[in-house]
Structure formats: structure tokens, C-alpha cells
Amino acid sequence: MAFKKITEQPSLYNNLDKMPVAELLENINNEDQKVAIAVRQVIPQVATLVDGIVERMKKGGRIFYLGAGTSGRLGVLDASEIPPTYGMPQGLVIALIAGGDSALRIPVESAEDDPNKGWEELQGHRINELDTVIGIAASGTTPYVVGALAKAKEAGILTGAISCNPDSPVAAMADIAIVPVVGPEFVTGSTRMKSGTAQKMVLNMITTATMIRLGKVKGNKMVNMQITNAKLADRGTRIIAEELNIEYEKAKVLLHLHGSVKKALEAYKATE
């Protein structure tokens, strides 16, 4: 089957510039509803990747995301949220974006065309066989991502790819290809829309399921979250109060004494 960029196909809608705002929004929403359905179809591949990640992270492995443009920014977003949400140390989920951190705000479009740069950056982190490399590319053709995945695979490192075009070069270079096919974008070729949403949903699934399997969630609570502001302190206090069936103020004292929900629960239960 020949590789065809579905993400670059013409929009199913014409004359967008003549549509009333309400109609524009309704049609965008109609297209967005297709995303969750597409993501559901790739759950088996996501599950296989998560199992591989968990097995490796239990032995000290890390997750590396690579992407350019919107895809790279989504990887950085997901990676940056893991330490505060789950109390994981910095450096266990690492996102690399073509063009470096400056590309988060100011596009560095040509940076993605170097097929060697991604692997060079991974080597700077002393990547090894316990790690997992996940390439993120809506089009599935980004040289920065394709080149890094090829080298990682050669080195015996588990590789995954998230793209929205079947049979893409990125998918071919990954051990586990995750391909939610969301169809043409509302604005032709604007992959920050449905493709970006699909990628974000898959990234949420990967890291959330991984953190749960690593014991960072108790019941349905984020017991390892970092208490870095008043909102999180309140949430942590309520979790402790509910879990131990004690008053809010007593739970608040426990949280501040021990510094985390998990430690507070463990300390309290040890005295019972």
C-alpha cells in the first residue's frame, strides 16, 4: 500500500471564510468528535507500548519523546506535567523538540530536517536499552524523528511512534506504531487541530497508565503529587481526610508534617 498523507488531504468543508462563526464552530466540533473514535482503535498498540515502558522503568529506564513543531510541543507538555502530578523525579520523562527549547515559543521550522540531530541529542542523555524512545509526528515523515527512531531501534532500544498517517516512515521505524487516523483537517493540512488532539490523547494514555502501573495512584487519587500551591495542598488535604476518615484540619497538619499525601497516609497508618 502506497504511503498517502491523509493529514494533507483537502478539508471536507469548503468556503470556510464565508461561514458564520457558529457554523465554523459546529463543524470544528463535528470533526473533533471523530478523534476519540480514532484513538479508541489504537488502544491495543498503546497497551503494548505501556507494558514495555513499565517493564523498563521498573529497572530504571526513562521515556524520551521526540517531535517537531506542534508534535514536539505536545511531548514537552506531557513530560513537564509528570513530576508535579505524580511526584516523579525530573529526568524520567524527557521531551526533545527540534530546534531546542526556543522552538517552544518561536518556530524553528528547518530544525526538523536534520535526520541525525535527534539521535545526537539522545546520546547526550546517555540513552540505553532500559529506555524507550517515542517519536511524535502527525505527518509521519519528520526527518528529525525518523532518523532518531532508526538509530534507537538499531541500538536495541524500544521504540514507539505516534502519527496520523498509515504506513508512514515514522511508523515503519518503530517497534510499536500508534496511528489514530483522524482524517483530513478542518483547515486543510492544519495538523495542530485533530491530529494534535489525537496525539495529546495518546500521550495522556501512555503516561497516565504508566504512572498507575508504577504505583503512583492509590484508588483514583494522585497520592504522589507535589504540593506546590494552595490548590494542591487543599486537594491533598481532602484526599487524606477522606482516606483516613478524619477531620480536614487534622489532615492538613499531617500533610504539612510529612510533605506528601502518600507519606502522610503511611505514617498515620503505621501508628494505628
Rank of each mutant, 00 (worst) to 15 (best):
K221Y: 15
V50W: 04
G69E: 04
E31A: 13
D175A: 03
A79R: 07
I246T: 10
M211Y: 02
G236L: 00
T271G: 04
I206W: 01
E249R: 13
E154T: 13
N224G: 04
A150L: 12
N229I: 03
A155Y: 05
V253S: 13
K250N: 13
M193G: 07
V54K: 00
A152Q: 01
I97Y: 05
E120V: 07
A209W: 07
P180W: 03
A172N: 15
L214K: 08
A270M: 11
D234N: 15
I136H: 01
P115N: 00
A267E: 13
L214T: 02
A137F: 08
L92M: 13
R73I: 03
P169V: 02
V202W: 05
I176W: 01
I127C: 04
M19R: 14
V179S: 01
S11C: 07
S195Y: 01
A241Q: 06
T228S: 12
M225T: 02
Q226R: 14
A22D: 15
K153L: 08
A155F: 07
I82F: 08
L244V: 05
I157Q: 06
R62A: 03
E249F: 14
G72N: 00
S195D: 02
Y248A: 02
V181H: 05
M222D: 00
A22P: 08
I162T: 02
F3R: 00
L66Q: 01
L77R: 09
P20H: 11
N224S: 12
M173K: 15
G60F: 12
E185N: 06
T142L: 00
G183E: 09
K200A: 05
Q226W: 00
M57C: 08
N224E: 12
T48V: 14
R238Q: 15
L96E: 12
G72T: 09
E266I: 12
G67Y: 10
L254M: 06
P169F: 05
A68C: 10
A38K: 04
N165K: 06
V181P: 02
G236Y: 03
L77Y: 05
Q123L: 15
T142Q: 00
Q199F: 11
K231T: 01
I127V: 14
G118L: 11
R192M: 07
V253E: 15
L203I: 12
Q9K: 12
A150R: 14
E249D: 15
M57H: 06
I28K: 11
V181K: 03
L66S: 01
G99K: 03
D51Y: 12
V217W: 01
K216G: 08
S163Y: 01
I82W: 04
A98G: 11
D101H: 03
A172L: 13
L74D: 04
G124Q: 10
T142C: 00
P10E: 10
